[in-house]
């Protein structure tokens, strides 16, 4: 087919002066049976697409997309994690010679070499061979990069505390209560220190769980205040038993 320089058009239009007949492209260089793209092959592609779509929708219905509580820039205890496909880059920055003073190596040199190599692959691997076995260097480097990516992602996943991550991002219900309540005043008293970890709205934080809607009886709350629970040390409450009664009553009634 005639292309490019020397083509003649009608007047100043782009209509070629010589109209070419519609001859399909010659695929004789490929062996075997060819198939018309339209509509035969496209129909098969649509069937593959439909099967894929069913799987995709099942995934969507089975796992609703996550939404954590609204961003709070003051919560400095939050441990962030990027989306899973950035985990290998994130993990790389945790190694000694890829972080701190060597940050440039972990953040730019190594990813730059890897992605730069990927981008320029056709200009690095220039031989005429196409079979992977006959291009040992190209195949070897790709397998190495693949193994490194999978390894780094895996390391990142197993070293992340997924339960803590889920807890720290949970949407907590705000409780409706009166801040002039005597129980709240005892809770907020700096002497007892409850408010430092459980927050001024009793909704908890990075260091402590929410106290809203615990479903605990006052006796159980008093026990925790005396004996501690999980990361909470014993005898945190410094007030009198009478004050503890009031506060336990107050927390127990939060919904």
């Amino acid at each position: 087919m005639h292309r490019g320089k020397g083509m003649k058009f009608v007047g100043d239009s782009r209509i070629p002066a010589v109209r070419k007949p519609n001859v399909p492209k010659d695929y004789s260089e490929y062996p075997g049976k060819t198939e018309a793209f339209w509509p035969n092959f496209l129909l098969k592609e649509w069937m593959v697409g439909a099967v894929f779509l069913v799987g995709y929708l099942c995934l969507t219905v089975a796992h609703p997309s996550p939404l954590e509580r609204v961003a709070d820039p003051t919560d400095t205890g939050y441990i962030p994690l990027p989306d899973w496909y950035f985990l290998f880059l994130y993990q790389l920055l945790k190694y000694t010679y890829a972080s701190g003073p060597y940050n440039v190596i972990g953040a730019f040199v190594i990813p730059g070499l890897a992605f730069g190599g990927l981008l320029l692959a056709p200009f690095i691997d220039r031989g005429p061979e196409r079979r992977p076995i006959k291009r040992p260097f190209a195949t070897g480097f790709m397998l190495l990069a693949l193994a490194a990516t999978i390894f780094l992602t895996w390391e990142s996943v197993i070293h992340h505390d997924w339960e803590a991550a889920e807890a720290q991002g949970k949407i907590v219900e705000e409780a409706d209560f009166d801040k002039n309540d005597e129980g709240y005043k005892i809770f907020a008293d700096q002497k007892n220190g409850c408010i430092n970890c459980h927050g001024e709205n009793l909704t908890g934080g990075a260091a402590a769980p929410s106290l809203v809607g615990t479903g605990l009886k006052p006796e159980e709350i008093k026990k925790i205040a005396h004996e501690g629970k999980g990361a909470m040390p014993p005898n945190m409450f410094k007030g009198t038993d009478e004050e503890l009664d009031k506060m336990a009553e107050f927390i127990s009634n939060l919904k």
Partner: peptide
């Protein structure tokens, strides 16, 4: 649309 699909790419 109007082209042939070679055998080696056809599942």
């Amino acid at each position: 649309a109007d082209h042939e699909v070679p055998e080696h790419v056809n599942p």
